[in-house]
Amino acid sequence: MKVFTTIAELRQQLDSDRNAGKTIGLVPTMGALHNGHLQLVKTSVANNDVTVVSIFVNPTQFNDKNDLRLYPRTLDKDCALLETVNCTYAFAPSVEEMYPTEDTRVFNLGLVAEVMEGKYRPGHFNGVAQIVSKLFDIVRPDNAYFGEKDFQQIAVIRAMAAQLGYTFNIVAVPIVREPDGLALSSRNTRLTESQRRNAPKIAETLFKSRTFAASHSVKETIDEVVNTLNAIPEMRVEYYEIVDGNTLQPVTDWNDSDYIVGCITVYDGEVRLIDNIAYRRSEK
């Protein structure tokens, strides 16, 4: 595996690969890689001749400077992991390389970016659109891979791609979980022992809510999930919304859509964890 730190060198290599008729897959990451990321890489390796994994902690998508400061950075370990899954290239640029000047672009990402994370993390998705569009322009992939744990982010990236006229495939890969159900996240490494013991209750509560939902309303289901998790020491639900899986707008009745997803954000101590679960799944 080759590691690139400059845009020019990576582009030169990819131009050569493209001219040789090779297909290119891109997996954008912020590093601190875990098995969820590796599943994205494996999917790309299986479906493309060349796989590029970017490792870049993007400052423009953090609305909390403390979160940016504490975000784990483990480049050497990340590269060693990528070697084990046959990644072709890692791209690990500096902030100065990606942002030689301030990126002042403002994206109109529509309603999918205004709810949930968009409401609680102002500017976050504009920062995501800035960095992902930069990576798309640098790599020019045939396929780009994102994890479904960041369910809303995928919808936002698809909206951004449509706005900018990107025509390649944006592929969503299912959530990878620990054996106890916790959705894999780079932030999990920041949990204390007691917080880590509690964290799987997020997924456990979501899965149980499917059964609860069969005989209760949307609102009752939301209340049940929120009250259950808020009763656990050190846990605080920031939001739990049950939405149309395509538009991300809230539903009030189980018959409002054929594709219904519950999206949650929970603080476990000071660590912000996200997860989601499908109640009905019939995508357009």
Rank of each mutant, 00 (worst) to 15 (best):
E97Q: 14
M98F: 07
M98G: 07
Y99V: 02
Y99P: 04
Y99W: 11
Y99S: 08
T101Y: 15
T101C: 13
T101H: 15
T101Q: 15
E102P: 04
T104I: 15
R105I: 15
R105N: 11
R105L: 15
V106T: 07
N108F: 09
N108D: 15
N108I: 07
G110E: 00
L111S: 15
L111N: 12
V112R: 00
A113C: 09
E114V: 01
E114M: 11
E114N: 10
V115Y: 12
V115T: 14
V115I: 12
M116H: 01
G118M: 10
G118A: 04
G118S: 11
Y120Q: 03
Y120G: 08
R121M: 07
P122Y: 02
P122R: 12
G123Y: 11
G123L: 14
H124S: 07
H124L: 03
F125G: 00
F125L: 05
F125W: 08
F125D: 08
F125C: 05
N126V: 11
N126G: 04
N126Q: 10
N126S: 12
G127M: 02
V128L: 01
A129G: 00
Q130Y: 10
I131Y: 07
I131H: 01
I131T: 06
I131R: 04
V132S: 10
V132H: 02
V132C: 06
K134N: 04
F136W: 06
F136Y: 10
F136I: 03
I138G: 12
V139R: 06
V139A: 02
V139H: 06
V139W: 11
V139N: 05
V139E: 13
V139M: 01
R140I: 15
D142E: 10
D142S: 09
D142A: 14
N143H: 15
N143V: 13
A144Q: 06
A144G: 03
Y145R: 10
F146Y: 10
F146H: 02
F146S: 01
E148C: 07
E148G: 01
K149S: 06
D150L: 10
F151P: 01
F151G: 00
F151R: 01
Q152G: 02
Q153K: 00
Q153L: 04
Q153R: 01
A155E: 04
A155C: 10
A155K: 08
